[in-house]
Design a protein around this nucleic acid. Structure first.
Lengths: 271, 271
DNA sequence: CCCCTTTAGTTGATGACATAAACTATAAGG
DNA sequence: CCTTATAGTTTATGTCATCAACTAAAGGGG
């Protein structure tokens, strides 16, 4: 497959080389730009990723980057696929352990790059690394009897869950560094402010929640931690129980399930 | 509860009036600003929401807005809580129907405001409407036997799912309007481009997916539709099956579950 | 060996944006 | 009337993405 059979953005995502060796040779390339942008985001947050800053870091002018990345949004996409990296090799006895492994690894990627979940979403996933993750996810589900749409939906639910939990802990971490407090203090402050605001009559159940000790004794857990926290595990197992139900239904009634699970392209984000 | 017992941002979210009636009376207020910003976002997308444009729409100068909203990010937060609106009243026989109702209503909010899922996330939810949604969600779960943390986690999983599916269909809609094609064409183009890119040897399962007809015959569905699509329903039921398992476990072993589900403040986003 | 084409990187400019500081305007109350 | 507190305006600053026109450096054909 050559460069021109595909939109230029996809071409750069997949690092398709333009065949010609004419003209001045490039000193810069997509890879270096993306790596620099990622370093910058890791160090100073996503808002520090600016074309001028990336260029300065590399010792080039801002505009030189446009020879390689097209636009800032495209750079975001490239960064997202880059940090995904190669998916884990999954040797699991059953789909359930396999999916758990997949989701935890995905969660760890977010832990290493807090900005990942904040990345402006753009289009369905199309990079080589996203595809690789999709591929191993599908392999785990291969013998479940689920149809294509159902498989994709399962991975979508899982990655959406990973993304949203990552977003929340990134948020907590941001609050922590903004106020200089620990995570426990941030959670406590939040709970107390809400307890003051939430009226017992208007919001009886929410008031009960904020009156509980849930936010008083909060955990202290660094975001990049290898082990997922209990909250993450709880939600993950919850989803996996749901998948189990779908798999059982598929195995009981394979034809019907194919129909039920067929959602025809609406959903295919596996980030 | 008075204004000064709480950070100013929360005060504006909850529309706490400053008691003093001194000085020049305000012509502008938070409500009008937020409404205008929301209209702008509905009409021209989130990127059209700019302090100058909002001000112009209202017939004031840009800087006047800062008397009422603090910052652009705060405006985003205010917009988010505003469009959430009052949660539905849920009269459901059991928690399962109740949660389904809750999630579908949440999904419909996103359908009415495609930019909602793109809103930069900032901090745990704290607005009156977010609290109201949290409240009815908790009420639905009241008699499940789940602990506070588990209840919050369930709502987190659900709303994360709603958010991520909303993000995807917004993305699809964006691609549709960008290229002027229908949703079906966009999906088809995507599937074909990926089929060309994805190598059968490197990515056997992904290649099989893109070789399938999943993306060829795609649905045409407007985003703001009242009825959720089959993909949404599939994932929702999957999650609800998972919740059912958690509820069964909680009822079987109430004490143990309290411990398992206790995640102490890590997770409380119900947007 | 020179020039032409092609590709890479640079210069300078533009318009939009968020936000800060200092200003003017307008109310109530003493 | 004058003080004080609050609302809205003016003016300015620095940052940003991106455009258009430029210079620079390679290789190939004459």
């Amino acid at each position: 497959m050559t460069v021109d059979e595909v939109p230029p953005t996809l071409g750069r995502l997949w690092r398709l080389r333009s065949g010609s060796r004419l003209g001045r040779p490039a000193e810069l390339d997509v890879e270096r730009i993306v790596r620099t942008a990622v370093d910058l985001a890791d160090r100073d947050g996503l808002s520090a990723v600016t074309l001028s800053r990336v260029a300065k870091e590399l010792g080039f002018t801002t505009m030189s980057l446009y020879r390689h990345v097209g636009s800032k949004d495209e750079l975001y996409v490239l960064m997202g696929d880059h940090v995904l990296g190669a998916p884990p090799e999954i040797h699991a006895a059953d789909w359930r352990d396999g999916l758990r492994h997949w989701a935890v690894a995905h969660r760890q990627v977010h832990g290493r790059h807090e900005w990942l979940a904040r990345l402006p979403v753009s289009g369905p996933p199309g990079g080589p690394n996203a595809t690789a993750w999709l591929d191993v996810g599908l392999r785990v589900l291969r013998d479940t009897g689920l149809g294509w749409a159902a498989k994709v939906n399962v991975l979508t639910v899982l990655s959406g869950y990973v993304r949203s939990t990552a977003l929340q802990s990134a948020e907590l971490a941001a609050g922590r560094s903004r106020t200089g407090q620990g995570a426990a203090e941030v959670a406590r402050e939040y709970g107390r402010a809400m307890a003051r605001l939430v009226d017992r009559d208007r919001f009886p159940d929410a008031a009960a929640l904020f009156a509980s000790d849930l936010f008083e004794s909060a955990p202290t857990r660094p975001a990049a931690q290898a082990e997922p926290g209990p909250a993450f595990t709880f939600g993950l197992d919850l989803i996996l129980d749901g998948v189990a139900a779908a798999v059982d239904a598929a195995r009981a009634e394979p034809v019907r399930t194919r129909k039920t699970g067929n959602t025809r392209g609406e959903t295919c984000d596996t980030r």
